[in-house]
Design a protein around this nucleic acid. Structure first.
Ligand SMILES: [Mn+2]
Ligand SMILES: [Mn+2]
Length: 326
DNA sequence: GATCATT
DNA sequence: AATGATCAACGCGGC
DNA sequence: GCCGCG
């Protein structure tokens, strides 16, 4: 049911605007012929489809390591972000050049899941209207063993940005206490994502239970500022620590993915030391991220390594017990 | 993120 | 009512 | 076979 998979569709056509049917010539980017290159896909920034294609071409070396070997879902917005948007999880009949179809066994009841691991497939997805790329927390070769967990910090939109910085720093403190290396990225929306790389030691059930337990632990210490319970009324004046991203089949927007929101913000990895200087989770965009990348002297996530294990000591520290299985 | 299912 | 789990594009015309 | 429509 397509209608249920879509985000609000705003009526797009208005009187005389031949709805992007401009027969402007196609432009090749990364061996992909991009149609309607001059179509405006975001009125706030005025950026065009070709700008998004060139953006992903530019950031390919940064985004691909996070997409490689994982199922990917697309958020497509073929008429621009103010038009209809829909989330695509299966390959179906969509023909994206160079995209991989994953083994049927990963999801036997449906068409194959997709993988993008080349610049050409990335730009090919943009040609098909993709704006956002979302991935699983596990790689296809060991899909039952997550290789990271994510704390997705979702604020009451009314809260000042400083509260998000405080909450992020607070979670980092807890992870430090647990001796877990953690890495930060802006979500491109309202909040931050905290990523904890893991060795492939545990199953989904255990990883989710741990993420939940850490979240509850944090909430017990700042009950007036944090919640781990979903539902809008639970997060009034608070930040929801969304641990449910850590579930089999769930996905999270990839590092260096654009977001289909006004201004075309990007989810951007930062170094811990940059946290205090962040101005917003949407401060980097398709239009300005290149400037940051050009002047970086090192990968903000250097040192990222999949070797960490969730130990009995950690469970003890947060006052929780691991599930029997996994 | 929206809807479904379970309680 | 509330929360956690689950799901997420397609072929196509017009009744 | 169900309904909207780029
Ligand atoms: Mn979020
Ligand atoms: Mn969330």
């Amino acid at each position: 049911m397509a209608a249920e998979a879509t985000r609000s569709a705003k009526p797009r056509s208005r009187g005389g605007r031949s709805a992007g049917k401009r027969s402007t010539g196609r432009i090749d980017v990364a061996e992909v012929s991009v149609s309607s290159p001059e179509r405006v896909i975001d009125s706030q920034s005025g950026l065009h489809k070709i700008d998004l294609a060139r953006f992903y071409c530019r950031v390919a070396d940064w985004i691909l390591p996070g997409l490689d070997n994982r199922p990917v879902s697309l958020l497509r917005a073929p008429e621009g972000i103010e038009g209809e948007q829909f989330f695509q999880k299966h390959a179906g009949r969509l023909a994206i050049p160079d995209i991989k179809h994953l083994d049927q066994s990963l999801d036997p009841a449906h068409p194959p899941l997709m993988e993008i691991d080349t610049q050409k497939a990335l730009v090919g997805a943009v040609q098909m209207g993709a704006v956002e790329f979302h991935t699983w927390g596990a790689t296809t070769d060991r899909i039952e063993r997550p290789d990271h967990l994510v704390f997705d910090l979702d604020p009451d939109p009314e809260l000042p940005w400083q509260r998000m910085l405080d909450a992020t720093a607070f979670l980092l403190d807890i992870l430090d206490e647990l001796r877990l290396d953690a890495f930060l990225k802006t979500s491109g929306g309202k909040g931050m994502h905290i990523v904890v790389p893991l060795g492939r030691f545990h199953g989904w059930e255990r990883v989710k239970a741990f993420a939940h337990a850490v979240s509850e632990f944090a909430c017990r210490r700042q009950p007036d500022r944090l919640t781990a319970t979903m539902g809008p009324k639970n997060r009034v004046g608070k930040i929801f620590i969304d641990y449910l991203r850590n579930q089999r089949g769930a996905s999270t927007v990839a590092a260096y993915s654009a977001r289909a929101r006004p201004g075309l913000p990007v989810s951007v990895p930062i170094h811990r030391d940059e946290l205090g200087q962040l101005k917003a989770a949407s401060q980097w965009t398709v239009g300005n991220l290149g400037e940051r990348l050009d002047t970086l002297n090192s990968d903000p996530w250097s040192g990222y390594a999949n070797r960490q294990r969730i130990t009995a000591s950690m469970w003890r520290t947060i006052g929780a017990k691991p599930p029997e299985e996994d």
